[in-house]
C-alpha cells in the first residue's frame, strides 16, 4: 500500500522537478519555476498568525468564500437533484412529459447562463450560487432519475407484497438502490462546480479565487496567477478525495465483483 502510494507520487514529483529545471533554463517571465510559485503561494495564504493556523487574511477573504459558494451551490443542487430525480424516476408520467425538457436543459452549457444570472442577480454571491446550482443540477438529477427508475420489478413486487409503507419504500429501497448512480452524478457535478465557481468569479465577483486570478493577470503577477491555478488543482483533488471517501463508506454494501453469486437462469 505504502509502496503504491510512493510510486504514484514519484511520477508527480518527477514531473514537477522537470518543470522546475525547464522553467529555470528558459527563464521566461510567463512561466515561473514551481519553487517560485510555491513561495508565492505560501506568502499569499500561509503567512498568517499561529493562532489562525498560519492562514493569512487572503484565505478568509478569497479562498474560503469561494469554497463556501462551491459547497453551498453543489449542496443545493444535490438536495434538489436527488429529490426531483427520484420523483421523476419513479413516475412514468413525469418521465414522459419532462424527458425532452430535461434533455434540452442538460444540453445548454452552464457558463452560457452566467450573463443571464448577471442580469437577474447582479454581481455577487446569489448570482454565483445560481450559476453553480443550476449548472450542476442536471448530472445529479438525471443520474438520480435513472437510478430510481432502474429499481428492478422483483424489489417493487417484494415491497408491495409485504405492504412496505411509502416512506420506508422511498428511504429503504429506492434511495439505497439508486445510490450508486446518485454518487456518479455527484462526482461529475462536484468537478463541474469548481469550473462554474471560477467562471462566475471571473466575470461577476469582488472576491474569490477566480477574482484574484483575474487581478493577478491584469497586474502581470504571473507567480500569483500560477499559484491560484495550483490552488484550484489542490482544491479539486481534496474535494474529490473527500467525496470518494464518503462514497466508499456509504456504498460499502456493494458486492465486490468476484464474490457475486449469480443465479442460474431457468425458464418458466
Amino acid at each position: 500500500m505504502r509502496n503504491l502510494f510512493l510510486r504514484r507520487w514519484a511520477l508527480f514529483a518527477a514531473l514537477v522537478a522537470a518543470w522546475e529545471v525547464a522553467a529555470r533554463l528558459a527563464d521566461n517571465p510567463f512561466f515561473p519555476p514551481p519553487s517560485e510559485i510555491a513561495g508565492t503561494a505560501s506568502g499569499l495564504w500561509l503567512s498568517g498568525p499561529v493562532d489562525r493556523l498560519f492562514l493569512s487574511d487572503a484565505v478568509f477573504s478569497d479562498v474560503l468564500p469561494s469554497v463556501g459558494r462551491l459547497l453551498l451551490g453543489w449542496g443545493l443542487a444535490a438536495v434538489l437533484g436527488v429529490a426531483l430525480g427520484v420523483a421523476i424516476g419513479r413516475s412514468p408520467v413525469a418521465r414522459h412529459y419532462l424527458g425532452p425538457l430535461l434533455t434540452f436543459a442538460r444540453a445548454v452549457p452552464p457558463p452560457a447562463l452566467v450573463p443571464v444570472f448577471l442580469v437577474l442577480f447582479r454581481v455577487g454571491t446569489p448570482m454565483q450560487l445560481a450559476t453553480i446550482t443550476l449548472g450542476v443540477l442536471w448530472p445529479i438529477l438525471l443520474n438520480s432519475a435513472d437510478g430510481a427508475r432502474s429499481i428492478d420489478a422483483t424489489k417493487t413486487d417484494t415491497a408491495v407484497v409485504f405492504r412496505i409503507p411509502r416512506a420506508q419504500w422511498i428511504l429503504g429501497v429506492v434511495l439505497p438502490g439508486a445510490l450508486p448512480k446518485i454518487f456518479a452524478g455527484l462526482r461529475v457535478s462536484l468537478s463541474l462546480s469548481l469550473v462554474l465557481m471560477v467562471v462566475s468569479e471571473l466575470v461577476g465577483s469582488t472576491n474569490g479565487i477566480g477574482f484574484k486570478l483575474l487581478v493577478a493577470q491584469r497586474e502581470f503577477d504571473f507567480p500569483q496567477l500560477w499559484a491560484g491555478i495550483a490552488l484550484l488543482g489542490v482544491l479539486g483533488y481534496l474535494l474529490n478525495t473527500a467525496l470518494l471517501t464518503v462514497e466508499r463508506r456509504m456504498l460499502a454494501w456493494q458486492p465486490r465483483q468476484e464474490f457475486v453469486v449469480k443465479p442460474t437462469t431457468a425458464g418458466d
Binding site: 422483483t154 413486487d157 417484494t158 407484497v161 409485504f162 439505497p176 431457468a266
Partner: peptide, 15 residues
C-alpha cells in the same frame, strides 16, 4: 400474505 420469488438475488436487498 408473503411471497418467495424465484429470483432471490433481486428479491433481497443487497444494501
Amino acid at each position: 400474505l408473503a411471497v418467495v420469488f424465484q429470483d432471490y438475488s433481486r428479491s433481497l436487498f443487497p444494501w
